[in-house]
Design a protein around this nucleic acid. Structure first.
Lengths: 337, 337
DNA sequence: CTGAAAGCGCTAACAT
DNA sequence: ATGTTAGCGCTTTCAG
């Protein structure tokens, strides 16, 4: 940071007070066209760039928000980050991107940093269900919005998905296609939202008189490989499932890979449905049937909620917005052969 | 930002000077274990979080860097962002993520913001070849590292790929497989790095006595759909290519989609090779043959270069590190039928 | 309509 | 070994 020109320099050179310069920069009180023009010219000449860190200190507002996601290299989170940046930008906010790497320790470290950096707000997809450190933040007055994860005791707003409905619909879709041996690839460890997805699956089976087989539920990982490995396990189970639901598209894509590696075909031999509807899911072979996650919408809602908190117009009640989900039927599911 | 406890409060309550508190926080001069402990206790009690914006103002260092990428929802950039965040985090830097959306105007706006926010450095994948605004930054003393794009007149370091070699190898691979009708899906508009890729392709054809057919070069878009559309055009060309090289994996995946939609098979009817080696490329059907882009390595090199500039130990010469590329042969390429 | 000046919370030179 | 204090560059109240 070797920027030396300050507002005083501008003021001196333009023959006005620093107050005037500040006001022309921020358009915050009337300044005669004459002075205004003079100030602008000097700023231009000296290539002046206002120091926002000084401004932030004074104004107690940084115009930056923190965003903590598990892993930006996951397409869902990448799209979500992108959307939040987009929306933030148009409201004059920058976003500090933080990856927790599914690691509570790193997440908490980041929260400390962001807090010390005095971000105006925080949008977070937490790694755990633990609410204490989030509530500390909230209690300290930092606006926090929780995304995509249920944190039961959190004292702040969240925007969630109707996960239960998502897998319920997916399962019913499969059942209607004649499947009854429907497997489920779950995430590596439970969290309320994943439990909800599992519940949707279970409920659909139950309602249709299909007995749940525990050996058809298996855990995957957070990458493509995880889905492939889970599927490999499933392929060894007897009876072999004729359909599988994965907790996300990445796993589903890994699963397809594993199936085809066994000389089986999707959907002829096994149907697959994913969750998230990441961009590539329309371009896989076969195109993936999946539950559409409205990422941009989630970002919008999150930002609106955050804005309200920033403006102090947030309702006292803890908002919990649940976005509806919709099954997108493509080519990876078919009538049982 | 309604954090009210300041270093003075801590000092007062602990019965020490603010200097002492500052020094225990930053470990910047000796403080007796006794005072140190007392201060720590008070900080704990009052849930004190040092105000880094004040610190930054004073210290003229924000410990945050700006990262401008075209679009974080592109898997390559998502991985790159992730890697830079990761490396930055371990050196105590936060990163402000900015998407230029391939839009020079937005890019320049972000540069202004980042500059005013006094980021310590900037890592950028520029949208254009235009160096002026980058050089202004450089001249103003802001450490800038250019990634993945050739900006000929830029007066700062860059870390690039050996793009020429990448497509050259890809093309030779195809030629060895017996192909001579090799098409090329280019990006929507030219930039030096894409021109280099095209050069590699041309050179390989030429060296092998294959005549370049201009009608086999077509432009795609920045998403999967763009690749699919480009491929559709190619499929209408006579003679139809037996192999195609795409400027990135996303396009290649879109192209595969388009091919299969015409009841043709990859690689039996048409071979495809991509560029980037994004994670999903090992899991497509067929697995994509592609040029591996060492994303984490690029992030590391970029950060090292940046660090040097931050420490003022950067060489005077403008560094231009070119990372080697390597073709990963998977299943989307085969001997001509 | 414009200016003077206090102070945001911290760091670090200087003093003891 | 610790304390005092002058700013960092800006915003904003208060005065005129």
């Amino acid at each position: 940071m070797i920027f030396i020109i300050t507002i005083r320099d501008i003021a001196k050179r333009a023959g006005v007070s620093v107050a005037t310069v500040s006001h022309v920069i921020n358009n915050t009180r009337f300044v005669s066209e004459e002075l205004r023009e003079k100030v602008r010219k000097v700023m231009e000449e000296l290539d002046y760039h206002p120091n926002l860190v000084a401004g932030s200190l004074r104004r107690k507002k940084t115009n930056t928000i923190g965003l903590i996601v598990p892993d930006n290299s996951n397409p869902v989170f990448a799209e979500l980050s992108r959307a939040i940046e987009d929306i933030g930008f148009s409201s004059g906010y920058s976003v500090i991107l933080c990856n927790s790497a599914y690691n509570l320790d790193k997440e908490i470290k980041y929260v400390r940093v962001l807090r010390s950096k005095r971000v105006d707000g925080l949008i977070i997809i937490p790694t755990t269900v633990q609410a204490t450190y989030i509530n500390q933040l909230v209690d300290s007055g930092l606006p926090v919005i929780i995304l995509d994860r249920t944190v039961p005791d959190a004292k702040t707003d969240s925007v969630l998905l109707d996960n239960y409905q998502g897998t319920y619909d997916a399962t019913v879709h499969l059942i209607k296609l004649g499947h009854s041996l429907i497997a489920y690839i779950d995430r590596p460890f439970d969290l309320p939202h994943s439990l909800d997805r599992l519940r949707g699956y279970r409920k659909a089976l139950e309602e249709n008189g299909i007995q749940l087989k525990d050996e058809l539920i298996v855990r995957g990982g957070f990458d493509y490989e995880g889905g492939a490995e889970a599927m490999q396990k499933l392929l060894k189970r007897k009876p072999t499932p004729t359909a599988v639901i994965a907790f996300n598209d990445i796993s589903a894509i890994g699963a397809i890979r594993a199936i085809e590696d066994c000389e089986l075909k999707v959907p002829q031999d096994i149907s697959i449905v994913g969750f998230d509807d990441i961009p590539q899911s329309s371009f896989t072979t076969p195109r993936l049937t999946t539950v559409h996650f409205p990422k941009y919408r989630m970002a919008e809602v999150a930002f609106e909620l955050l804005q309200k908190k920033l403006e102090g117009t947030s309702s006292d009640r803890r908002a919990e917005i649940v976005l509806p989900l919709r099954l997108v039927v493509r080519e990876s599911t078919a009538k049982i052969g």
